[in-house]
Design a protein around this nucleic acid. Structure first.
Length: 276
DNA sequence: GTCTTTCTAGCAAACCCTAA
DNA sequence: TTAGGGTTTGCTAGAAAGAC
């Protein structure tokens, strides 16, 4: 087992799913071509440590990258050899289900975690936990209580939210709670409805209650298109209910996130702000 | 000398452009 | 309109180079 193969396993345990370009982003090997060889080794044999999902070809995009993840053998390896705590390993249960319709959204969501890690590693902070919208708890066989880990029920109107990411972290010894939404596509109406539910969750103090915080969380939305970010800001100005909650919502595009994780966010008053 | 990493060539599939 | 060449993206195989 080479050092780079160990790092691949550790990265998969942290991020759950990774494509080769994401592994490349993590600087595991200097050359991306070398990655394919390491991945092939880890995938080899009757009981491989990792497995992959392929998504074929999408018109206009070419061949899509595979998603890699730890097998149960891979998880056992980390527990036995590197003394990993089983609770801390992110890995799909059983054989991973496909998520072709969710491909780009899931990839961007995982990208956020990678950029978050890169930023916090260079700063005075620590991620206490980070859960994705596709992390589940419960089971659907005996107890029939399988549900998204991030699900939060809204009392006023019924309904619920499942933030794409819920994360709690410390920065300069202060704790912070964030709900992250990754918005792909151009459906502002759907997003506004979603943000309204987020507003209700804030009003009800749901984040603070569920995750033991003294203060309210912040909702950060990452947009695929800048035009949709602007359109959403424009439309939200006219919705009275959001008044007084402007500072709890911050917006950014994926492109801008890649340039700077901490700076250049925009709040609902269109004021340039940072993450905190 | 061996194991690991990097480099080079090439395949498959889809898109774009141009010439017949 | 069609056919063909070039390009892009993701990946594999195998040889060469590098690290210990």
């Amino acid at each position: 087992m080479s050092e780079s193969e160990l790092r691949i396993l550790e990265s998969l345990a942290r991020y759950k799913y990774l494509t080769t370009s994401q592994l490349d982003l993590l600087n595991i090997l200097k050359n991306k071509m070398g990655l394919y060889q390491r991945l092939r080794e880890l995938r080899a044999g009757k009981k491989p440590l990792i497995a992959n999902n392929s998504f074929g070809i999408m018109p206009g995009k070419g061949k899509l990258e595979d998603f890699y993840y730890l097998t149960s053998k891979g998880q056992d390896f980390l527990i036995e050899n590197l003394e990993y705590n089983e609770q801390k390993i992110k890995a799909p249960k059983g054989t991973s289900s496909l998520f072709a319709r969710d491909y780009f959204h899931r990839k961007e969501t995982i990208n956020f975690y990678i950029y978050f890690d890169k930023w916090i590693n260079k700063n005075d902070g620590d991620i206490l936990f980070l859960d994705y919208y596709f992390d589940k708890i419960g089971d659907n066989r005996s107890k029939k209580n399988l549900r998204a880990k991030n699900k939060i029920d809204i009392e006023q109107t019924g309904g619920y939210i499942i933030p794409d990411i819920v994360t709690k972290f410390t920065y300069k010894n202060e704790p912070y709670l964030f709900f992250i939404e990754q918005h792909n596509g151009k459906d502002t109406k759907k997003l506004l409805k979603q943000l309204y539910f987020h507003l209700l969750a804030l009003e009800e103090g749901k984040g603070a209650e569920k995750y033991q915080m003294q203060k309210n969380h912040r909702v950060a939305v990452i947009f695929e298109f800048e035009s949709i970010l602007k359109a959403t800001l424009e439309r939200i100005q006219n919705i009275n209910e959001f008044k007084g909650f402007e500072k709890f919502f911050i917006f950014k595009t994926n492109e801008s996130l890649n340039k700077s994780f901490f700076n250049d966010w925009i709040d609902l008053k269109r004021i340039n702000t940072n993450l905190i």
